[in-house]
Amino acid sequence: MSEESERSPNPGAPGTSRRDFLTQIGGGACAVAGVGSLVVTLDYLKPKVLFEPPTVFRAGSAVDYPEGTVRFNREQRAYVIGGGGGVFALSAVCTHLGCITRYLSDEKAIACPCHGSRFDLEGNVVHGPAPRPLPWLEVTADAAGNLVVDSSIIIPHGKVTRA
């Protein structure tokens, strides 16, 4: 007991000397401050307002899309396609590494110029390195048949919008 009280003058914390205790407090404070400033800096680096293009766009009327029509909207990077008894929209951004795909009208296929991925008109991967099919985007139609596409909302494959 006497030996231990010699090493630890603080009887409340047996085995810890005052010096060890203060070292731990100091070290802990430095660690907290370090982690805290790192987190705050990372947060600072994260932009809060982005001036990126809007994700909602009009795609005309449903009667413009008879079976087999493919229209490519450049600004929105999306295909609006008539098929399956209605209209659906596909993202034109390759799921591989984000290149913009092209529609090859004579081959009825969508091809990526960067690494040679190919998709059919429903977005399924035919071959190439793309890991996933092209996502389907939400298409809504009002009573008059005007179509609105929201490229930020991804819907399950095969969900065709009928006007």
């Binding site: 450049r74 600004e75 913009i100 110029p113």
Partner: peptide
Amino acid sequence: PIETPNPA
């Protein structure tokens, strides 16, 4: 941003 050169 809308025109990917071929090949990139």
